[in-house]
Design a binder for these strands. Sequence first.
DNA 1: TACACGTCATGAGAATTTTGCTGGTTGAAG
DNA 2: CTTCAACCAGCAAAATTCTCATGACGTGTA
Lengths: 225, 225
Amino acid sequence: MRILLVEDDQKIAAFIQKGLKAEGFAVDHAVDGEDGLHLALSEPYDAAVVDIMLPKLDGLTLIESIRQERLKIPVIILSAKGTVDDRVKGLQAGGDDYLTKPFAFSELLARIQALIRRSTDQTEPTRLAVGDVSMTLITREVVRAGKQIELQPLEFSLLEYLMRNAGRVVSKTMIMEHVWDYHFDPQTNVVESRIYKLREKIDKGFPTKLIQTVRGVGYVLKPKI
Amino acid sequence: MRILLVEDDQKIAAFIQKGLKAEGFAVDHAVDGEDGLHLALSEPYDAAVVDIMLPKLDGLTLIESIRQERLKIPVIILSAKGTVDDRVKGLQAGGDDYLTKPFAFSELLARIQALIRRSTDQTEPTRLAVGDVSMTLITREVVRAGKQIELQPLEFSLLEYLMRNAGRVVSKTMIMEHVWDYHFDPQTNVVESRIYKLREKIDKGFPTKLIQTVRGVGYVLKPKI
DNA sequence: TACACGTCATGAGAATTTTGCTGGTTGAAG
DNA sequence: CTTCAACCAGCAAAATTCTCATGACGTGTA
């Protein structure tokens, strides 16, 4: 497994490089954005760890450039800033995960492994997008129109299922099977009530509503004014 | 799809038969246990719906006989009695699901479809067993030593994951990935605390303990005094 | 248009699950 | 054999999710 590390702080870089090598990864280290971009475009990496603050070319621009070249390597963003806005920007630029300094090495490792697992498994995307809503599966973050939306675990699973089936009507039974893992009708209205909560967060205040109810059938995720 | 219906009450039988035919199933109807067993052993069915109270041969014995012949057709038990003890007996005899009269036809249909889906998908079992614990996935019921154990949804998922990996040590990270769908360390002790709850229900009061902790590694499900 | 019926949205209260903490165990190193 | 740090059980408080009752809405019928 080859990892590209783009980090100008020598101390942090050494710490990460050492840890990853001990775990059996081959690590290439670039000290500035230009160098990093060059390496990313010329060598085949399984994942990249990119700092935001970099000399010559900043991390966000670097990631955008990589994505413009249609490269799908999973990218983990490192940053000293942990504000919501920074995370949103990072994930929008095309990052697959976001880690705030300082962090435990074990956490970086876990995330790299999670990303590599996902990306080698061709059937599993790391992000989903419908209309102006995008979802980062690893960090479980959802952004609509540049604004981060806080979802509860079940609300996230529900939206994920709707997004994976965007444009298709999904019945409440199907939703229950996939989101709740119930294989028979529990005779309650869990789905309806959770859809209501999700709508409050994802649709309320936006001009176009995404969650449509199809009477007697189920729900669809589709932009509609 | 061929369904075997074993039911002596003509009215109920007609009601079920009519409904299933309307849904496109081919239904064979036996009016007593002997007749039902004979049909079950001679024809290939995709599922069976069996009443408990039957002339000549009762439903439970019928199911046990079918299972002794190593037949794996999914069986739904119908019964007027809905006590916990009856359910336990039914599921222990080898039933895959249990429905108490009176029931809505839509519920019977949903359960038949769920069972057929599971059984045609060869990779998906409908029941799991380790030591004296058995788990019915469709009804989400767990029985240890003939005693039904009430589990919460998450406790059930956790036990299910442990049972699917019985004898193998599973790390807390793996448990989190599969049961909670967390792909990185949330830095909490959710797993530990849920294992504790599960132990209280599944191991407390029994001479052999099933859930073993393997220090520094994770947990195993394995019978041990 | 008015009515009846089934489906769906809504919100409050109950139940479950997670979090965060405390003190007790365990096992390795010296 | 002792010390220390990591790990774990156990519990209570906080957060999330489910349940249940009620009213709104849509659809077909007279």
